[in-house]
Amino acid sequence: MKRSTVIYIIVFAFMLIGCGILVLASDHNGSGATATVYLDGEIVAVVDLNTVTETWTLAVGGNTVEFSPGHVRMLDACCPDGLCVRQGYASAGKPVICLPNRVMLVISGSADTGVDAIAG
């Protein structure tokens, strides 16, 4: 095997490991304080999840957003894939994004500020 091939394999392996760590690190369930709902890049609703006592839903651009005490998720989407529904509850490091309908659920205001810098 050529030496450059070995170097490529090592570089790609390190990238895989690094990205794997990033993915795992962002996949925690930090229940944030505030959920912001975006449609087309505009803020549609800002909800303090700590004040939510009963589960309620909100229709945004063909999607249905479900707020429950401490949590927010995409309950339903009109697109064929429904990837955002499968993403489950949003957390501070893991926003829920619906690309076809351009709807986004972002959690902010929790202890860790990893994503807030990007979201700001």
Binding site: D40, G41, M104, I118
Partner: peptide, 9 residues
Amino acid sequence: LMRTAVVFV
């Protein structure tokens, strides 16, 4: 399209 950098997560 989404007009946000959040997608880069």
